[in-house]
């Protein structure tokens, strides 16, 4: 790939779970958008070798490069490489962490000195729910992945920008970024910029106090339904990155987590009801 050398804005290096990532962006508006969106990620320690992403414009179109190799060339939709960047960043973050830790596909947020883990597959509303929690004062941990240390069950956060798909927009209109047109199919929301935000969770992340499998059911009144520890392991295993390659390591980790933390299902309709339910549950768990 031959690309013109132009001035790029460099973002990072950030720590994305155990991955170190750096982003070079040619377009100033996209750079500003990403700088805000990525602001929750911790700064990487000096000396670490980053995965380098670049968003450029060449004759063939808009390009995403990863470590100087093109991974996407898009002739028309200039925003698409930015969307792909986030996808690759998630993948690099998870892959860098799997050798060390169990990585759950989960949202998470902290309140009252404890963290609620919300494992769930894609498209089940976990980003919506965690946005509701953060704007109610919870601290943001992640809307995508959380690492669980196999020895200590300590959590590692991944405070990437919250990705809100169009289905969430009517529920959370206030979360719309001012420059939402930069990425027209998804809002990338910096948790600390939400009104009422509890900010990004501190390090170390408060310990897990609840595991909640939330699911949207139109019109349902939010209620917690206790899960047995075994049922919780079954559900969390379905949300483990790296499965089945990590099953031998991760099953005992999930078992210890489920034995030490109560687990529930949360059928939910309205967002505010679910937030209030989780806040009360975390406060009870902390008492």
């Amino acid at each position: 790939m031959v690309s013109e050398t132009r001035d790029c804005e460099r973002l990072g290096p950030y720590l994305a779970l155990d991955a170190v990532v750096e982003v070079s962006v040619e377009d100033a508006r996209t750079a500003a958008y990403l700088r805000r969106a990525l602001s929750g990620l911790p700064t990487a320690p000096a000396g670490a070798r980053p995965v380098r992403y670049a968003l450029r414009r060449v004759d063939a179109g808009h390009v995403l490069e990863r470590n100087d190799e093109p991974v996407l060339v898009e002739p028309d939709r200039g925003w698409l490489p930015t969307a792909y960047l986030l996808w690759h960043l998630n993948r690099d973050a998870v892959n860098a962490t799997l050798p060390r830790a169990t990585v759950l596909h989960a949202a998470a947020a902290s309140w009252a000195g404890g963290t609620v883990l919300l494992p769930a597959p894609m498209e089940t509303g976990k980003s919506t729910l965690v946005t509701g929690l953060v704007r109610a004062g919870f601290s943001y941990v992640t809307d995508e992945a959380v690492a669980v240390d196999p020895a200590t069950l300590a959590l590692t956060s991944y405070p990437k920008p919250i990705g809100l798909d169009p289905g969430s927009w009517p529920v959370l209109p206030d979360a719309r970024p001012d420059d939402a047109d930069v990425l027209p199919e998804q809002w990338l929301v910096a948790a600390s910029g939400l009104a009422g935000s509890g900010g990004v969770a501190p390090q170390p992340v408060p310990p897990a106090r609840l595991v909640v499998l939330a699911s949207f059911e139109r019109g349902a009144r939010a209620r917690l339904e206790m899960l047995t520890p075994g049922a919780a392991v079954l559900e969390m295993a379905r949300s483990c990155f790296g499965w089945p390659g990590t099953a031998r390591r991760d099953l005992p980790v999930l078992a210890r987590l489920a034995e030490s933390v109560p687990s529930f299902r949360l059928p939910r309709g309205d967002l505010d009801g679910a937030v209030a339910t989780l806040r009360s549950a975390l406060e009870r768990a902390a008492a």
Partner: peptide, 21 residues
């Protein structure tokens, strides 16, 4: 792969790729 979880057990059948409780 079997793991005891409180008084239950979870198994992962590596051949079939299935979880059991």
């Amino acid at each position: 792969l079997w793991v005891d979880v409180a008084d239950e057990r979870v198994g992962y059948d590596e051949q079939a790729g299935r979880l059991h409780l």
